[in-house]
Amino acid sequence: MSGDYTGFILAAYGFSALAIICLIIWIALDSRSQKRALADLEARGIRRRSDMKRDATVEGV
């Protein structure tokens, strides 16, 4: 009986795996590029007034 449905089951699991893997890769790449950009800015001596902890608002994030 399972033979008739193998294609449907494989398609459902296959598409799901593909979409979730793409999502994970996208989130990981985005994270890496922002970390690099921040490190790059800091290397150029541009730093946040972070430790003053003055701006807890979204603007100052």
């Binding site: 994270s31 922002q34 970390k35 950009a37 921040l38 800015l41 541009i46 730093r47 946040r48 979204v58 603007e59 100052g60 994030v61």
Partner: peptide, 10 residues
């Protein structure tokens, strides 16, 4: 959060 920091610093 990092993206907003990068934008503010830029």
């Amino acid at each position: 959060i990092l993206r907003r920091r990068v934008e503010a610093l830029s």
